[in-house]
């Protein structure tokens, strides 16, 4: 079994509204899996089904090869987007309570909490009340509580919201460390730059349906359209441009005579760039020759928009 979680044609309806329509996903073990989609696409419903907060009307969910059942709750850690803590409870007491609810024994939970509190250098918070903490401080506690019982699968819904950049980085490093230690991670977010940075796999949900999924690098390959960003150092840019326009499909160009630089965006009919590169190098100094690969953000927007046009 190479997948930690598999959903098969999962459908969930709320009255007239279909929140998930036959969504099938395969989430590989020991990877970071980005669950993307605009608001209302069905991400939270899917996550709640995985956490057994909601139950699918149709379809099946498998966790580590077994049909999802109550025992798996202790093997999943979930940091919801809407997250909070009991305001009037003390930090340590509350963390202990939440850990025990996940099935940890009291002394073991205490030991592990001590470790994490030291790691984040927040030992002094144990006896503080939650209402005395700032939002970022409370988020750290929530993060600790989510990972404390060492789940096989971690689900983070917008984990970086509420963190300042420094603490967001600390959390990001922790997530990467957890992945290195063998944990599988589902990562639901709108922040595309963190998707690029962290996710190996993504799935895109839109209007309750899965519209795209797979390895991020594969998806990018599919979405690239043989467009190259070229910058040349040349004395007589105008004539070279004319010549190139005759041979290749030039989408746009700028020539700055003072700096002797010609910038071009060129689209090739197929992925072979050798011919053009050879031609260019015979005519000018190449400053830059880069294939433009679409960002996750581009893919996200393009897919969602094309869906909306078709519907």
């Amino acid at each position: 079994m190479n997948n930690i979680l598999v959903t098969k044609e999962v459908t969930k309806r709320f009255g007239e509204h279909t929140a998930l329509n036959k969504v099938s996903l395969e989430i590989p073990k020991n990877s970071i899996y980005g669950l993307l989609g605009p608001n209302g696409a069905g991400k939270t419903t899917l996550i709640r089904i995985i956490n057994q907060i909601a139950f699918p009307d149709e379809g099946e969910v498998f966790f580590d090869g077994e049909p999802l059942n109550a025992h798996h709750i202790a093997q999943i850690g979930y940091l919801p987007e809407e997250r909070g803590l009991y305001k009037s409870m003390k930090v340590g007491e509350q963390a202990l309570y939440l850990a025990q609810l996940k099935g940890l024994g009291k002394s073991e939970a205490k030991k592990r909490l001590k470790f994490w509190f030291e790691r984040f250098e927040i030992e002094g918070w144990w006896h503080k009340k939650v209402q005395e903490l700032s939002k970022g401080m409370a988020q750290k506690i929530q993060f600790i509580v989510t990972v404390l019982h060492r789940p096989k699968l971690l689900i983070f819904d917008e984990p970086f919201s509420g963190f300042d950049p420094i603490n967001a980085n600390i959390i990001k490093d922790e997530i990467l460390k957890l992945k290195e230690n063998g944990t599988s991670i589902i990562f639901s977010t709108h922040r595309m730059e963190s998707v690029e940075e962290l996710c190996e796999y993504i799935a895109l949900l839109h209007n309750s349906e899965k519209v795209l999924d797979g390895k991020l690098s594969d998806i990018k390959k599919d979405y690239k359209n043989n467009v190259f960003d070229v910058c040349l150092e040349v004395e007589d840019g105008d004539s070279l441009l004319k010549e190139l326009e005759g041979k290749f499909k030039v989408r746009s160009s700028t020539y700055l005579p003072g700096e002797s630089q010609l910038e071009l965006t060129v689209e090739l009919p197929f992925a072979d760039s050798k011919e053009m590169l050879a031609h260019l190098s015979s005519r000018a100094n190449i400053v830059r020759f880069v294939e433009t690969i679409p960002s996750a953000n581009d893919i996200f927007i393009e897919t969602v928009q094309s869906k909306e046009v078709h519907e």
């Binding site: 709750i73 997250r83 609810l101 929530q142």
Partner: peptide, 18 residues
């Protein structure tokens, strides 16, 4: 209501049944 407004509810019910 307090559990709802403090948003702890979803954390709790991912561990126990409502």
């Amino acid at each position: 209501i307090e559990e709802k407004t403090s948003r702890i509810i979803e954390v709790i019910i991912s561990s126990v049944k409502p």
